[in-house]
Structures are given as C-alpha cells and as structure tokens.
Design a protein around this nucleic acid. Structure first.
Length: 276
DNA sequence: CGATTATGATTAA
DNA sequence: TAATCCTAATCGC
C-alpha cells in the first residue's frame, strides 16, 4: 500500500521499534547480502521519509535507501524471528522486533551526496512539517499537462500516488484532464490542503480513507471497505451514484465522476454578452 | 497451475 | 509510450 502516507508511517514505526537499538541485518533471499553486512551490528539512528522514499541512517556513513515501488512490503514479523516467508530482501532484528522487506524496487546503500540528489528532484512533501507548496504552485502554472498527470509527478508534489490523486481530484471537484494551467489559486490551495489532510489521516490510520465520516454515517475506523473511497476502483460514485468514467492520464488509469467533477466550470446562470 | 493484478518509477525508444 | 523490474494474492480453468 505504498503512497507517501505508507512511507511516513513506516519511518515512524521503524524509529519506534528499532530506534537507538543495535540491529542485526541479513538478506535471507541473498540479493542484498553486502548491504546487510554493512548495516549489521549498528544502531538505527533515524528513519526518515521524503515522499515515497525511505532513508535509514545506521551511522555507517552510507544511508539505506528503500523504495517499495508498486508491490514492495516492509512489515513486522514474529519476534523472536522465525524462518522467513517468501523472498525477503532485508531482515532487521532489534531487541524486540523483526522487520522483513520484500519486493522493493530499490534497496541500496547511498552516500549522503547520492541521497541529496534524490531529494533534490522531489517536490514538496505534504507530510513534512517544513513543506512549502509555492514551488508546486509555480510549476502548475507552467505546464499544460493534465492536472491528473501533474499530481503523479513526484518532482512537483512528493507522495501522491494513484489512489490519492483520483480521490483528491474528486474531493476538490476537479476533472483530471484539465490542463494544469487552468487550476486557479483557490483550487490549488484546496488540492494542497486536502492532500495534507488526507495523507495525515492515511499515515495515522494505516489505510487510505478519503470519505467524510458524516457522509458515510460511521467513524473512519468502522467504515466498510467499499465506503472508504469516493471513486478509486469503483463503478459508481460513492457520493451521487453516477456511473464513473476511467481514463488513462499520466500513463495510469484514473476514475472520476462526470457529475461531481465537471470538465468545464459550470457556466454562470446569467445572460451572456451578445456575440458580434 | 498459469494468468492477472497491484497504492511505482526508471530506462529505452 | 512501452518495456522492464520486484513479489504475492487472487482468480479462472
């Protein structure tokens, strides 16, 4: 379930469960033996997320970089550790917790310079305290690409993935195909604020929930799976019931509601000035 | 048992 | 844009 909220949650939980502890590192699968050996026996100083990128500092001079990609998982397992299940790239064992990493698109040791180069090309991360959306706002004004594509671009905003982009555009009432240049200041503010709000909810709860508890009639923690999202992977709009449309934008499918996310602004209900 | 699918991103063309 | 990588759960035959 890797969008930005997952990685921030992961960083927090790694700090909570392994922070300051001497860690035994291994690569049961064998594809990260060298890296694991370099980490083994050192203490976790800090785990930190930048968008969907995770960096762990073991005080060795190099930083562990993990990117889960589409299918990666980094999860706790039984303690004391048991025989690994499946392909475990990296296992970290502290004094009370076992973590297994499988299927990452990246798992490598980086120099601080290399880490900087990755972070430099990321846009502001809505889950970071110091996030400044102004650069993202400026980028939008300069690209005709559909807003649906822009929101997936990690160099513009870091941390949004395919579920959140669809849900954010729904919540903000914006059609995903609209050129980014047509997004108004008010709309951008709404997108940013909702991104912060919804990713925070995801980070705290460990799942993506974008629907309004009032609207659903039960607290987020007790919502049924099919009530947690408005449009993603749905046939009909959770709010108005309209048949949803799915288009390919930014190379991936995005579902939207033709009623709640009109392509054009609703024309003002007033007489138009006559054409000449 | 094989095909399909998945909340991602990079590289090649 | 397409091909590619990484893994595991699920679905159809």
């Amino acid at each position: 379930m890797p969008e930005g909220h997952t990685i921030h949650r992961l960083a927090r939980r790694l700090n909570e469960t392994l922070g300051g502890e001497t860690v035994r590192a291994s690569s049961p699968q064998g594809r990260f033996e060298g890296g694991a050996a370099a980490i083994d026996g050192n203490g976790l100083i800090s785990a930190e997320a930048w968008g969907k990128y995770l960096f762990c500092d073991f005080g060795t001079g190099e930083v562990l970089h993990v990117h889960l990609g589409l299918i990666g998982k980094f999860r706790t397992r039984a303690f004391p550790p048991e025989e690994p299940t499946g392909a475990v790239r990296l296992r970290l064992v502290g004094s009370e917790h076992t973590w297994d990493l499988s299927g990452p698109t990246r798992c490598e040791l980086l120099t601080p310079d290399e880490q900087d180069r990755i972070v430099e090309r990321l846009g502001p991360d809505p889950l970071r305290r110091d996030a400044d959306p102004s650069a993202a706002r400026a980028r939008l004004a300069r690209t005709e690409r559909p807003i649906g594509a822009t929101l997936l671009d990690q160099s513009i905003i870091a941390g949004i993935g395919n579920v959140y982009r669809a849900e954010l555009l729904f919540v903000c009432g914006i059609h995903p195909a609209r050129p980014s240049t047509t997004i108004t200041d008010t709309e951008f503010e709404a997108i940013w604020d909702e991104t912060v709000r919804l990713l925070r909810i995801g980070e705290r709860s460990g799942r993506i929930v974008t629907t309004d508890p009032e609207e659903i009639g039960r607290p987020r923690s007790r919502m049924r799976r099919e009530d947690r999202l408005y449009v993603y992977h749905r046939e009909h709009c959770r709010r108005c019931g309209a048949a949803l449309r799915t288009d390919r934008i930014g190379g991936r499918p995005i579902t939207h509601c033709p009623t709640c996310q009109p392509a054009k602004r609703r024309p003002r209900a007033r007489a138009r000035s006559p054409r000449r």
